[in-house]
Amino acid sequence: MAGYTGAPVGVVFMKPIFVPKIWGGRKLETEFGYKIPDGKIGECWAISAHPAGDCTITGGPFDGMRLSELWDQHRELFANCEGDQGRFPLLIKILDASDSLSVQVHPDDAYAGAHENGSLGKRECWYVVHADEGAQIIIGQHAKNAEEFRSMVEAGEWDRLLNKVPIHTGDFFEVLPGTIHALCAGTLVIETQQSSDVTYRVYDYDRVQPDGTKRQLHIDQSCDVVDYAQVPPKDGKVRAPEVDGVTELMDCPKFVVDRVRVEGKKSIEQKWPFMCVSVYAGEGAVTVCGTRYPLKKGSHFLALADAGTMEFEGELSAITSHLPE
């Protein structure tokens, strides 16, 4: 298909996708103002081209198109970025953990490709938008090898096996492939991750779903992929300096994640194939390619390669992500 030859697009906004979860709640409605379905809603897929949740573009010349279609048909808008295995590489979510998530682990690209029909692995991270007082997170484990891990799982020695740390609003956690982890009750986070949905459950608190069944566990796969050499973190404090309103939270081979604070006016040069932007506090606006877009808590947009300099105004905080150099 011929490349797009119209006026610069700059940004695209998308319709979020909401996912019911046994551990979900209603904070996506009460805290972010989304109109969500009834029941326990655990996830907002805000920027996604994954087959399990492919966001629809709203407004502009590509109104009604899926993000995957824009990626496939107009790669020039992404500076002809190759992506991971030709796919749009990132997935941005908000997670509302009213109850605790299952204790789980994700594989890397090599294991997922070999065992999950060519899927990508899952490297992710969490920025904590809110944590109830006294809330905890499970991040890391204490077994030295697969044999010890399996033995502790089968014996239900969760207090010995799992690494638990307090979690606070403003914390940040890297969740690399091979990391045992689980958000616990009372947490609300923005998740930046590879575009993958492969999860291996280790423990689900013996919960029963509405249909009376328990969710499947994946002990063999978990034993295979846990990183037994990993040193569990003690907290999620952000120690990186803030420079001109920007704090680099994570720089890894798959993505770079920053926290951006706008107080008044701020210019950000969009020099990447694309940039994901998620506003988690405050309100204001951004002007891109001569068009002004209002922003508020819960606004997400994808800045394309032709966005140039983005002019922000107002009082707001956002999480941004892009590919590494």
Rank of each mutant, 00 (worst) to 15 (best):
M1S: 14
G3H: 03
A7F: 15
V9P: 03
I17L: 02
V19I: 04
V19F: 09
P20V: 10
W23L: 01
R26W: 04
L28M: 11
T30G: 12
D38I: 12
D38F: 15
I41A: 14
I41D: 03
E43N: 13
E43T: 13
A46Q: 08
S48F: 06
I57S: 01
G59K: 15
P61C: 03
F62T: 04
E69N: 08
Q73L: 09
Q73Y: 08
F78Q: 08
G83F: 14
D84A: 09
G86L: 03
R87T: 15
F88W: 09
D96C: 02
A97H: 14
A97P: 07
D99H: 08
V105P: 10
A110D: 12
G113R: 07
A114C: 08
G121H: 01
R123T: 15
E124W: 11
Q136K: 12
R150T: 07
R150H: 11
M152A: 14
E154V: 14
E157V: 15
D159A: 07
R160W: 04
N163F: 05
N163R: 09
V165L: 13
I167G: 15
I167Y: 10
G170C: 01
G170R: 00
F172P: 02
F173K: 09
E174R: 12
V175K: 01
L176N: 10
A185L: 12
T187A: 03
L188I: 13
Q193V: 08
V202A: 12
G212Y: 05
T213N: 08
R215G: 04
H218A: 12
I219N: 14
D220H: 10
Q221A: 09
V225E: 09
V225Y: 05
V226G: 06
Y228N: 11
A229M: 10
P233H: 13
R239S: 15
T247I: 15
L249T: 02
C252K: 12
F255M: 06
V260H: 00
V260W: 00
G264P: 01
P273C: 13
P273L: 07
M275C: 05
C276V: 11
G282Y: 00
A285R: 02
C289E: 01
P294T: 02
L302G: 11
G308L: 04
E311D: 13
E313S: 07
G314E: 00
G314Q: 00
E315W: 00
I319P: 01
I319D: 10
